[in-house]
């Protein structure tokens, strides 16, 4: 009963705001409200600690951000990190998706390689860093490796799930309609698995983005991770916070972008 009343009341409020600013406007208002809450809490904490090395206020952090932006340092670090994510992610996807499909449809290959996948999967990307540095040195190549490792497993596991969930009735229907091998793969199996693959891509990109920072903390001399690490050593805590917030913003922007693209990648899902 309470729940019912609450739902109706909530719907009413939502409707009132939406009537004034529109549905998209409502979303924006809520995002701003949420960020405002975050900044207020942050400033209270900063006021209590009263030590800009431990926690600078939002204002100080904003100043630091302005400086990092105007000097171009932030942009070059962002670009360095983005490049590593995009390349590593692309490498992971181009191996993970075909491999997952092959393993979903060829049981010998699956039986032979699945235990290896299960063994490697729980190893966090950070544990690969020593090997990555030994093999590739310092700079871009070890970071590509780490971002690829991070993106690989979510993409692979989801694509594999998609491959094995292709429905038998769709395979049979295609056979009755005379589908050859090529059409079976390109027009039945891949599109049928696409919702899973897409989920893997979204999760994989997020993982890859998190991993690049980790990689840069140790194995690079540019990028957001490196900037954070460097600023910590110089006790420039405001710069650390700018780096962290940039990571958060870009990460959520990337995922939001992919969610937006979904209507073009999976148009038939958008209609349901």
């Amino acid at each position: 009963m309470m729940n019912l009343t609450g739902t109706i009341g909530g719907g009413g409020r939502q409707g009132w705001i939406a009537a004034v600013v529109g549905l998209a406007g409502t979303t924006v208002i809520w995002i701003f409200a949420s960020y405002a809450l975050f900044v207020v809490t942050w400033n209270i904490a900063a006021g209590v600690l009263d030590n800009p090395v431990l926690l600078p206020s939002a204002g100080l952090t904003l100043d630091a951000a302005a400086q990092l932006i105007s000097s171009g340092i932030l942009l070059s670090d962002v670009l360095a990190s983005l490049k590593r994510v995009v390349l590593g992610f692309a490498m992971a996807a181009s191996i993970a998706i075909p491999l997952a499909m092959l393993m979903a449809f060829f049981s010998t290959l699956r039986r032979l390689t699945m235990p290896i996948v299960q063994l490697l999967r729980p190893i966090p990307p950070i544990a690969w860093i020593p090997l990555a540095v030994l093999w590739f040195g310092i700079g871009d190549p070890p970071s590509y490796f780490i971002t690829a490792i991070a993106a690989f497993f979510p993409i692979f596991l989801n694509a594999f799930e998609g491959g094995i969930s292709v429905e038998k009735r769709h395979i049979h229907a295609a056979q009755f309609l005379g589908a050859g091998r090529r059409a079976m793969i390109m027009k039945i199996i891949v599109p049928s698995s696409m919702p899973y693959i897409w989920t893997g891509v979204i999760v994989g990109l997020g993982q890859s983005w998190m991993a690049v920072v980790t990689a840069e903390l140790i194995a690079a001399q540019s990028g957001l991770g490196y900037m954070i690490q460097n600023s910590r050593i110089n006790l420039e805590t405001a710069n650390v916070l700018v780096g962290m917030i940039t990571i958060g913003l870009l990460g959520s922007l990337m995922v939001a972008g992919l969610r937006y693209l979904e209507r073009y990648v999976l148009p038939w899902k958008a209609t349901q």
């Binding site: 429905e167 009735r169 769709h170 049979h172 229907a173 295609a174 056979q175 009755f176 309609l177 005379g178 027009k187 039945i188 599109p191 049928s192 696409m194 999976l266 038939w268």
Partner: peptide
């Protein structure tokens, strides 16, 4: 011995391809 285009089947639950 396997599904071939000499026949086709219509099931109770349709087997249309939802992505097309």
């Amino acid at each position: 011995t396997r599904p071939i285009p000499l026949c086709n089947v219509v099931f109770q639950q349709h087997s249309l391809f939802p992505w097309m």
